[in-house]
Simulated assay, not measured.
Amino acid sequence: MSTPELYIGLMSGTSLDGVDGVLADLSEGCQVLAYASAPLPLALYAELLALNQVGHNELHRAALAANALMQVYAQVVKQLLTQTQRPASQIRAIGAHGQTVRHQPQSHGGTGYTLQLCNPALLAELTHIDVVADFRSRDVAAGGQGAPLVPVFHQAIFGRDGSPTAVLNLGGMANLTVIDAHASQPLIGFDCGPGNVLMDAWCHQHRQQAFDAEGAWAAGGQVHHALLDRLLTEPYFAQPAPKSTGRDLFNLAWLDAHLAHFDGIALQDVQATLAELTASTCVACINSYAKNSRLILVCGGGAFNTHLLQRLQALLPACQVQSTATQGMPPLQVEAAAFAWLARQCVWRQPLALQSITGAQGARVAGGIYPA
């Protein structure tokens, strides 16, 4: 039996629905030993959302928000250690993603940037564990999109049975990983467009609920096809991969600009249309890039949106749409486990071959290490 290699992965995604964390043994594959989560305090949630847009005194506010986020991260680490009754000294490193507030790669003169609020030095101080952070910047510096990074993890974990498989992560944004059966084609991964971000924002604005539980509100509405057609004219959807996106583009201001061309659409029908936008854009990507895949594995918070999964299945009759839980990894654990795995890759100086995913000029080691 191999010696355990214990890593913690922490993820707070575009949905702003909290922090997910796992403690995993990565000595052979990825065995999740514990899972924990914590909600974002309401004031921090509001500040992180506001920091996605231009505002007053941003540098100061961003620094304080990063500090506050690390307190939540440290809380999740403590939960994981308590669950497994392990001391901090047994954990090789924490992979901390941070909170994306701007994502503009390959722009502003060619390189662009991606910004995740994180204070890994503070997290190392709070937990007494080495922290690996800033996973995306090196890829951007190498000419890549910096996102998505998780396809290499998807391939390692879900690409082992020899059949063509697609992994659809329905977080705030939706991203697709296409795993070829015999590795005759390069690994493909990219952002399809909005996942839950618009549905959540609309639901929060008009129902004061963080999300549409099980998609029930959308399921009771009617798709407004003229609005859907207009939303689908967004140029991002026609761009070829590699590509990535975020709240910089898909936000309520973007939606309101399109809604301004219509009068009297029922609020619930807008929700139904946003669900259909997510489903239809994901299906278009699957049909274009994963047409040989008969298994679609879904992870992220959207995996619990019953209505959305039903629409995906209806639009993909030749495929089997399943939660990643059927493969032994619950949907909310996948991205956190990915950042535990990415932390290990950094610690061991293993370059990530992301050229076919992000467009980077070559394989690079992703992340920076902050010793405890």
Rank of each mutant, 00 (worst) to 15 (best):
T3R: 12
L6H: 09
Y7E: 01
I8P: 06
G9H: 01
L10S: 01
L16K: 04
G18I: 04
V19G: 06
D20Q: 10
D20L: 05
G21V: 02
S27N: 09
S27M: 06
G29Y: 02
G29N: 06
Q31P: 01
A34W: 03
A36H: 03
S37L: 07
S37Q: 15
P39L: 09
Y45H: 15
A46L: 04
E47K: 14
L49Q: 13
L49P: 00
A50S: 13
A50E: 09
A50F: 08
H56F: 10
E58I: 14
L59N: 09
R61P: 10
A63Q: 15
A66E: 07
V72N: 08
Y73R: 03
A74F: 06
V76H: 15
V76P: 15
R86K: 07
P87Q: 05
A88H: 02
I91Y: 02
V101Y: 02
V101M: 01
V101R: 06
H103Q: 03
G112C: 04
Y113D: 00
T114K: 01
L117I: 11
C118I: 15
N119V: 00
L122N: 00
L122A: 04
L126S: 01
T127P: 04
H128W: 00
D139N: 12
V140R: 00
G146Y: 05
A147Q: 08
L149C: 05
L149A: 02
L149Q: 02
V150P: 13
P151N: 01
F153T: 03
H154E: 04
Q155H: 14
I157E: 14
G159R: 03
D161M: 12
G162Y: 13
S163T: 13
S163Y: 14
T165G: 05
A166G: 10
N169I: 10
A174M: 08
T177S: 13
H182G: 00
A183G: 08
P186T: 11
L187H: 09
L187A: 11
G189E: 08
D191K: 10
D191H: 09
G193D: 13
G193F: 08
G193S: 10
P194Q: 13
A201S: 14
C203W: 05
H206I: 10
A210F: 01
D212F: 08
A213L: 14
E214P: 00
G215R: 10
A218S: 09
A218D: 04
Q222F: 02
V223A: 03
V223P: 14
A226P: 14
L227A: 11
L231H: 03
P235E: 11
P235Q: 09
Q239N: 08
S244F: 00
G246A: 11
R247A: 07
L249I: 12
A257S: 14
L259G: 07
H261D: 11
A266S: 13
Q268E: 09
A275T: 14
E276Y: 09
A279L: 08
T281E: 08
C285P: 05
L297P: 03
V298R: 07
G300H: 00
G302S: 12
A303P: 14
L308I: 11
L309I: 07
Q310H: 14
L316S: 06
L316M: 12
P317S: 04
C319A: 15
T324Y: 09
A325V: 07
M329C: 10
M329P: 05
P330R: 05
Q333G: 02
Q333D: 04
A337H: 08
A340H: 12
T358A: 13
Q361G: 13
Q361I: 10
G362Y: 00
G362N: 06
G362P: 07
V365S: 05
G368Q: 08
I369Y: 04
